[in-house]
């Protein structure tokens, strides 16, 4: 065996033995969940994106216990919030669009996103505004977010039913889906009802 072959074999063997050990230790630290804020859109940018030239109004809606109960039943989960801010886009004093800026818990930290809906509570746009983790931001891709377009209260809006999750961002996909469903239900229950 010539010298080159011996060196190559030694490097290959040490890589196979030591790299996984070193890397797994490094990854163990990373898996604890490091705060890593990535701002994709500020509130102003997000509202401009969804409402464009429409006149925007912001209003706080406080839930009464009955409304909260109905919303929780439709969402199949408990919600901690007792009030929500709704953004309304008007043209000639007529409501054209609604939007919610919501927070949902990701794997370790919450993520902030905007959901805009038309005046019949069908989803028009969804965009991530702030993502606070190093991994899993695949949910910001159009491939994932476009699945929510035109979804309304008649749709399941659930992973494995009418939404396909993103590989490597399973928890974030679940959270985003729950958040979009929340926006649809809130519009139907608090605005259109």
């Amino acid at each position: 065996m010539n010298k080159f072959k011996k060196i190559f074999l030694a490097i290959s063997l040490s890589t196979c033995i030591f790299l996984p050990l070193i890397a797994s230790n490094a990854l163990a630290d990373e898996e604890k969940g490091e705060y890593y804020e990535q701002v994709y859109l500020t509130e102003k940018q997000a509202l401009t994106m969804v409402f464009d030239t429409l006149k925007v109004e912001k209003k706080e809606i406080i839930l009464n216990p009955e409304q909260k109960k109905i919303i929780q039943k439709r969402l199949k989960r408990k919600i901690k919030e007792n009030s929500f801010f709704i953004y309304t886009g008007k043209k000639n004093n007529k409501v054209e669009k609604y939007a919610f800026i919501l927070d949902e818990q990701g794997k370790h930290f919450p993520m902030t996103f905007i959901v805009s809906l038309n005046n019949k509570a069908s989803v028009e746009q969804v965009a991530i505004m702030v993502y606070r983790e190093k991994r899993g931001d695949g949910v910001k891709t159009k491939r994932f977010l476009n699945q929510f377009k035109n979804k309304n209260g008649k749709d399941a809006i659930e992973i494995d039913r009418d939404i396909v999750h993103i590989t490597g961002a399973t928890i974030s996909s679940w959270s985003m889906t729950s958040g979009v469903k929340k926006a649809v239900v809130l519009t139907e229950e608090l605005v259109l009802k």
Binding site: L19, P20, L21, A23, S24, A26, L27, A28, E31
Partner: peptide, 9 residues
């Protein structure tokens, strides 16, 4: 056995 990195290797 080597964590997630092991899976990728």
């Amino acid at each position: 056995i080597f964590g997630n990195t092991g899976i990728y290797i």
